[in-house]
Simulated assay, not measured.
Amino acid sequence: MKKPSFLKLIAAAFVSTAACLAAPAFAAPNCSAEIESNDAMQFNTKAISVPAACKQFTVKLKHVGKMPKSAMGHNWVLSRTADMQGIANDGIAAGIDKDYLKPADARVIAHTKVIGGGESDSVTFAVGKLKAGEDYTFFCSFPGHSGIMKGALTLAK
């Protein structure tokens, strides 16, 4: 039986060590979500989980429908669940030019602008604004949409 040469042993040890060093110790958290809205007043997801390890979280909203924002516009608004209805009610008077949100509404944690078919927008917010154990809802504030265009956002450990 032939013994491996000293150089082959060193090379094998180097390759093994390099492979271990190249592998990450842990996977980085996914600090973003992509959400689609459509002409049928729907988001393509009902839940978003935000990793607590993220410093910031980005939501990318895409309107995959064809209707203009004046007829079937959508935005993505995040608030505490208890504040959602009040924000939606107050937003009606604000109008489309203000994305159906009362200006400087402190109850709104984050929001995109209202977009129409084929358009997209994104928003990035500090995860530190979220508290463990609190109930959060994301919704569309276009008049009449928040009743069905909504979902839960949770802060994951």
Rank of each mutant, 00 (worst) to 15 (best):
A11W: 06
A11L: 15
A11N: 04
A11F: 15
A12N: 06
A12V: 09
A12W: 06
A12M: 14
F14Q: 05
F14H: 01
V15N: 03
V15D: 05
A19C: 12
C20A: 14
C20Q: 12
C20W: 10
C20R: 02
L21W: 14
L21E: 01
A22D: 02
A23M: 14
A23W: 11
A23P: 00
P24M: 10
P24A: 11
P24G: 05
P24N: 10
F26V: 08
A27Y: 09
P29E: 12
P29R: 06
P29Q: 09
N30S: 11
C31Q: 11
C31E: 11
C31G: 07
S32E: 14
S32I: 00
S32M: 09
A33F: 11
A33W: 06
A33G: 01
A33I: 06
A33Y: 12
E34L: 00
E34N: 13
I35L: 13
I35W: 10
E36F: 07
E36K: 15
S37H: 00
N38R: 08
N38T: 13
D39H: 03
D39Y: 02
D39Q: 01
D39M: 02
A40C: 05
A40L: 11
A40R: 07
M41S: 13
M41T: 03
F43L: 09
N44Y: 08
N44I: 02
T45Q: 12
T45W: 07
K46H: 05
K46L: 13
A47C: 02
S49V: 13
P51C: 04
A52W: 03
A52I: 00
A52V: 01
A53P: 00
K55I: 00
Q56P: 00
Q56K: 15
Q56I: 01
Q56H: 10
K60D: 05
K60I: 08
K60C: 00
K60P: 01
K62I: 09
K62T: 14
H63N: 06
V64E: 06
V64F: 07
V64W: 06
V64C: 05
K66P: 00
K66Y: 10
M67N: 07
M67V: 02
M67P: 00
P68G: 08
P68V: 07
P68M: 11
K69Y: 11
K69G: 02
S70C: 00
A71L: 14
M72T: 00
M72H: 10
G73V: 08
H74M: 08
H74C: 05
H74A: 15
N75G: 02
N75W: 03
V77I: 14
V77F: 08
S79R: 05
S79N: 05
S79P: 13
